[in-house]
């Protein structure tokens, strides 16, 4: 009987302990990646390939999503602002929402599900099919050869994608607000320029996207490397990458917003 009562606590304790263990393992893993990154930057071909896979292949989804998010923001924003007769603030609303918040966060979420999951699946599959062991037996360190380039590829691609997302969003807002609804283009841009600050709003957004890039890239390579070497293990690791990335992005977003703004 007492054992049945204790079981939830045992389970809780177990998950806390294993969570802490994984956190420690992930930070040691990050240390190993950083130590072995020298080789990555000495071989640009490897890095190019990874920027291609996580950046270029995410381009379409990022550009299209950014455009639509900007258009929706303009529609909603116009609806609300026109009640107070301040339509000229539409540009400010669209630009601030995108550069401070939606650009980095949505681009990060899309990046995690498009590129992060692909990185996890690829590394997990290489582990399951013993490609990583084979590489290690050929005296080639898999962390240096496989993990580090994918990590840095993600870290480099993410801020660029977030910037493209925000830029496309502003264009989308312009299309709906100015071209379709007919807000004055002069006040759309000039209000935006007078209210959006390069350091406080745009740079802060870029900092956010860099942090998200690091987080998602680390989660993706770690989950792949740590996945169970079976087909089921790889699929579970892929799911975990997307879920963990989403939670970490939103959590970090809160912390960064509190510190940056």
């Amino acid at each position: 009987m007492p054992e049945a009562l204790l079981r939830p606590f045992i389970r809780l304790g177990h998950s806390v302990v294993s969570g802490i263990w994984r956190l420690g393992f992930a930070s040691r893993f990050l240390g190993a990646i950083l130590m072995m990154s020298g080789a990555t930057f000495r071989r640009p071909a490897l890095l190019m390939r990874e920027i291609y896979f996580s950046g270029v292949l995410s381009l379409i989804i990022i550009l299209v999503s950014g455009l639509f998010v900007g258009m929706v923001l303009a529609l909603h924003g116009y609806d609300t602002l026109s009640r107070y007769g301040s339509e000229e603030w539409l540009g400010v609303l669209v630009a601030l929402s995108l550069t401070r918040e939606l650009g980095p966060v949505l681009a990060g979420l899309l990046f995690a599900s498009r590129a992060g999951s692909a990185i996890t699946a690829e590394i997990g599959l290489m582990k399951a099919t013993e490609q990583l062991s084979a590489m290690a037996m050929m005296a080639v360190n898999p962390v240096a050869r496989v993990v580090a380039p994918r990590f840095w590829g993600g870290v480099i691609a993410m801020p660029l994608l977030a910037a493209m997302f925000s830029a496309m969003g502003v264009l989308g807002g312009y299309l709906v607000g100015v071209v379709q609804i007919g807000v004055d283009p002069g006040s759309f841009w000039s209000q935006m320029q007078s209210q959006v600050d390069v350091e406080r709003d745009i740079l802060a957004g870029v900092i956010k996207s860099v942090v998200f890039g690091f987080a998602v890239a680390l989660i993706a390579v770690f989950e792949g490397y740590d996945s169970e070497a079976t087909a089921e293990g790889v699929s579970r690791a892929t799911t975990r990458t997307v879920v963990t990335s989403a939670l970490v992005i939103l959590g970090l977003d809160f912390i960064l917003t509190a510190f940056l703004f």
Partner: peptide, 19 residues
Amino acid sequence: IFVALGIASLFFLAVQVGN
């Protein structure tokens, strides 16, 4: 192309959107 687009976007944000 990707990196050029990214830098162009940052430039657009800084100059056209920001002040």
